[in-house]
Design a protein around this nucleic acid. Structure first.
Lengths: 112, 112
DNA sequence: CAAATATACCTAATTTTCTTATGCATAAAA
DNA sequence: TTTTATGCATAAGAAAATTAGGTATATTTG
């Protein structure tokens, strides 16, 4: 039941935000963290996550570091300097969107 | 400058919300209303709007009424009964998304 | 009066960003 | 031993935008 719809365009912002708070994370870890943070409301699918990570890396916002744990390979991502700046922009944009859409969904009556 | 990004998936919710408050509206009017409501922050492009209106109509959520004003044709849309219900669902979904994403962007520290 | 802007609709090509469905591999649990 | 969990990946397809046109009338501006 439930499971909030992921509005297209918000995923990479979520990734940048997670990495800003955790220094380095690997893909699978992100899917689990989002489940925790949202009490299961939001599920990041791997089909969406991995291509998004690759794109952020190609754009120079993330850098990669491989690590073997329990004989399984993990691909750790962390923010580059450009990624740190991009995160600020994206969060700002997301917050502006939320304010903006609340101006439509919960319009304040004009004064006067 | 500015102009908030429209997260993909939110447009039809905006349309349903506008029609719930204005009984009937035509496309061009919606683009202007959104500009007003958001102080120019959000611009609904016609390339996005018209296909979205057609889809909502095809899905049975909107009905159409033509009207000629000043020798120009207007296509007024209004909610059907199904559309009125759909509006409730979509607004709910959007608000759940906003709460959910704020749980990620502004996570509350766990108690204890 | 001519040109630009505003009003009003539309669509087609392309791009972005998902979902769904796979595939591979190792480890732990049932 | 089969399922679930961990961990990566991609490919086909769908959804929903952007961008860039097109048509037509009315109004404003230089």
């Amino acid at each position: 039941m439930s499971n909030s719809k992921l509005y297209k365009g918000s995923l990479s912002t979520i990734i940048l935000k997670l990495l800003a708070e955790n220094n380095k994370m690997y893909g699978y870890e992100m899917t689990q963290r989002v489940k925790e943070l949202t009490q299961g409301e939001l599920t990041i699918t791997e089909g969406a996550l991995y291509p998004a990570l690759h794109k952020l890396e190609a754009d120079g916002f993330l850098e990669v570091e491989m690590q073997k744990v329990d004989n399984r390979l993990r691909k750790y991502y962390k923010l580059t300097q450009a990624g740190t700046q991009e995160r600020v922009n994206r969060i700002e944009e997301l917050e502006r969107f939320i304010e903006t859409i609340q101006g439509i969904v919960n319009p304040k009556p004009s004064l006067g």
